[in-house]
């Protein structure tokens, strides 16, 4: 058993991948908790898809892919805000418009670049954690430290802001700066996670561990700790599964996290579907409606 655990660690590439997976599992759970309590899951999805053109351009001009992705994500949130505030279009539609446009531009750019360079669109879309370099590990570590530091330093203000924006504004907290700070956290976290799981599956690492924790505990910081536990456990288990059964790493991590969510969904002491069946007696209503429709149809 122990040998099996140590075996993959003998390879340098597995060491690097595991470190990245653990860091990403950690910061995604923390930042994802903020996304979840603010009901901004879709924004996470929007930003993660919007970083693609930035990565492609950074690659073209030999710049840092992390920075390119971050700028691209930032520009997308600016566009979303312009559409939302300067037209009658609502936020969710604005997100949908902007992120699909950015995503399409990104895919186009990468496909064009791909012909002359040895890069693979799939690595951008689904991550390439086994191919990470030492400098990727360094960049991810720096981002993780920044993210954790900001969350620790601004914890009480961000709690107030995300819980009661107007109350926080009324007492004079700089709510627009806090909002910007939160966007930066989300952007940095997504950018750091792209190597591990890619554009398409980042949302899972942000939302699933945080949601799992939300079903189990009732305070934000405890939710973050439990979420980190779920996220890091998923990362490590996913990487080992991927190593021993030759599965794609990113999806393996996501599947483990989703499995943990299903367990919490079924067995949570306070919300579980099986442990709290009383709460769910309303579910057959749709059958009632259906029966009524059929009955009326026969008359």
């Amino acid at each position: 058993m122990l040998e099996k655990i140590i075996e993959p660690l003998e390879y340098a590439f597995m060491q690097r991948s595991l470190i990245i997976a653990i860091l990403v599992g950690l910061i995604c759970a923390v930042v994802g908790s903020y996304l979840m309590v603010q009901r901004l899951a879709l924004l996470g999805d929007a930003i993660s898809h919007s970083v693609l053109p930035g990565m492609a351009i950074a690659f073209l001009v030999n710049g840092n892919i992390f920075i390119g992705a971050f700028i691209s994500g930032l520009i997308s949130t600016v566009f979303i805000n312009i559409i939302r505030t300067r037209s009658p279009i609502k936020e969710d539609a604005a997100m949908g418009i902007v992120f699909s446009a950015f995503f399409a531009l990104g895919i186009t750019l990468i496909t064009v670049v791909q012909k002359e360079n040895k890069i693979d669109l799939n690595h951008f879309l689904f991550g390439n954690i086994l191919g990470v370099t030492l400098s990727d590990v360094r960049d991810t570590l720096i981002i993780a430290i920044i993210v954790i530091l900001i969350v620790i330093l601004l914890y009480k203000e961000l709690l107030f802001y995300t819980f009661d924006k107007q109350g926080a504004e009324a007492v004079g907290l700089p709510v627009n700066l806090l909002d910007l700070g939160l966007m930066m956290l989300i952007g940095l976290t997504i950018v750091a996670s792209l190597k591990a799981v890619g554009v398409v599956l980042v949302l899972s690492l942000l939302i699933t561990p945080a949601s799992t924790a939300y079903l189990l505990v009732k305070r934000l910081h405890i939710m973050m700790f439990v979420g980190v536990g779920v996220g890091v456990f998923s990362s490590i288990t996913g990487m080992y599964l991927s190593y021993f059964y030759n599965l794609p790493s990113g999806p393996a991590i996501v599947l483990v996290a989703s499995g943990l969510f299903i367990l919490a969904f079924l067995f949570s002491p306070s919300h579980g579907l099986l442990t709290h069946p009383a709460k769910n007696q309303n579910s057959p209503q749709i059958w009632q409606e259906l029966k009524n429709l059929i009955k009326n149809g026969n008359n």
């Binding site: 309590v37 995300t162 819980f163 009661d164 505990v217 009732k218 305070r219």
Partner: peptide
């Protein structure tokens, strides 16, 4: 009604 009472806070 402006507050999200499902927010994880005590």
């Amino acid at each position: 009604s402006q507050i999200d009472w499902t927010y994880p806070a005590t």
